[in-house]
Simulated scan of single mutants.
Amino acid sequence: SNNRSSKNKNSKESSSIDRRRRERESEPKVDRRRREPYNAGPSSWGGVARRGAGWLEVTEKIETPERNRNTAYARPEPTYEDRRARAIEEKPTRDKVRYEADAAVNRAKKRTHRSAVVKRSLLPASPRKLPDAEASLVRILGNKDGRRALRRLVEASQAFEQERFFEARKILIPLERQAPGVAEIVEMSGLTLYRLGRWREAAKKLEKFREISGGTEQNPVLADCYRALEWWVDVEELWDELRDASPSGSLVTEGRIVAAGALADQGKVSGAINLLERGWRFPKRAKDYHLRRAYALADLYERSGKIPKARDLFVWITHQDKNYGDVASRIQALQ
């Protein structure tokens, strides 16, 4: 009887084991190493790290409201400024882009106004005596290639004079590679880039020309590049250098006009007027640079509200040249 009871017991145990095995086999296959919802983080993380991250997410969701109510270090309610700053930070809108752009521009202006951007060496007492373009190109490239390069330089100069600036630039690029130190090529390249409105590139070329030539011949154009870039201290340095060198009346006048324009661009209109008025006299025989200076001064008079002075100066210009710019229409507008 004992043997029979033990057999029955063993058969029951085996049948229960078999039943549980069948139940497990009938269940869907699940990777029990992944304990959802406690998995988080990228798949490149290890299993322990991902489960830890998932658990942190779950506990944050559960505990954060109660913790915020009970803790002695609960965060204060955000102020209006905090909410506005956060909104600007979180919303990638046009307002944010405009805000960041304006901030960058303001930082750039503050940085460039304090000191000169370009560190330039002092010029010699007088301009260097350089060989002409033909002699320089023949010396560098040889007789045949040098004369061919000279012809190309003349073609670039003609294209420039006819305001075909892209064509001039196309001709000058290979010449710069062949003879990068020839003053005429560097100068023409800088002037062409200036007329194309590529201020930074033009300034680099004209700074190089200044170093090669040792003169202030292109200081007005160079200063105007920096005026376009709003590098005010560089404009001022180049104007001081040109005024001290005083190479010719026309060059000094051009530099004066650029320097005055830079002051006006900064809102210093009275300073710009003072600069153009200084030493001004009506010439007996007016040249083009006299008319340019008078026009710039009349324009500043009008901007500052000195209408009678502006009108009188515009009228004087028409007596020298009836068709000078838009002077006639400006006089009519000031009547």
Rank of each mutant, 00 (worst) to 15 (best):
S6Y: 04
S11N: 01
K12Y: 02
R20V: 15
E23R: 14
E23C: 09
R24G: 12
V30T: 03
R32F: 15
R33F: 06
R34Y: 07
R35C: 03
E36S: 12
P37W: 10
S44W: 03
S44E: 02
G46A: 03
G47I: 14
G47Y: 02
V48I: 13
A49L: 11
R51E: 06
W55D: 02
L56G: 11
E63I: 11
E63L: 14
P65Y: 09
R67A: 11
N68F: 08
R69W: 07
N70G: 05
T71A: 07
R75C: 02
T79F: 09
Y80H: 02
A85G: 06
I88E: 03
E89Q: 13
D95M: 14
V97K: 10
V97C: 04
R98E: 14
E100T: 08
A101Y: 05
A103Q: 15
R107M: 13
R107Y: 13
K109A: 10
S115C: 06
K119I: 15
L122I: 06
L123H: 09
P124W: 11
P131I: 10
D132P: 04
D132F: 07
A133W: 04
E134T: 15
A135L: 14
A135P: 03
S136K: 03
V138W: 00
R139F: 05
G142A: 04
D145R: 09
L150V: 11
A159D: 12
F160C: 06
E161K: 15
Q162K: 15
F165A: 01
A168T: 03
R169Y: 03
K170C: 01
L172F: 09
I173Y: 00
P174R: 02
E176Y: 04
A179H: 04
A179F: 05
P180R: 08
A183Y: 14
S189L: 01
S189K: 00
T192R: 00
L193D: 08
R195P: 01
G197A: 05
R198D: 08
R198N: 10
R200M: 12
A202C: 10
A203S: 14
L206F: 04
T216N: 10
P220C: 09
V221P: 00
L222Y: 00
L222E: 00
A223R: 08
A223W: 13
R227L: 12
A228I: 01
A228H: 12
A228Q: 12
V233W: 00
E241R: 11
L242H: 06
L242A: 06
S250W: 05
S250F: 04
A260H: 12
G271A: 09
N274T: 11
N274F: 07
L275S: 09
E277R: 12
W280Q: 07
K284A: 14
R285A: 11
A286N: 05
A286G: 09
Y289Q: 03
R293T: 12
R293L: 15
A296M: 07
A296C: 04
L297N: 06
L300D: 06
E302G: 08
E302F: 11
G305Y: 07
P308I: 09
R311Y: 07
F314E: 01
D321P: 03
G325I: 04
V327N: 02
A328I: 10
A328V: 11
A333T: 10
L334H: 10
Q335I: 12
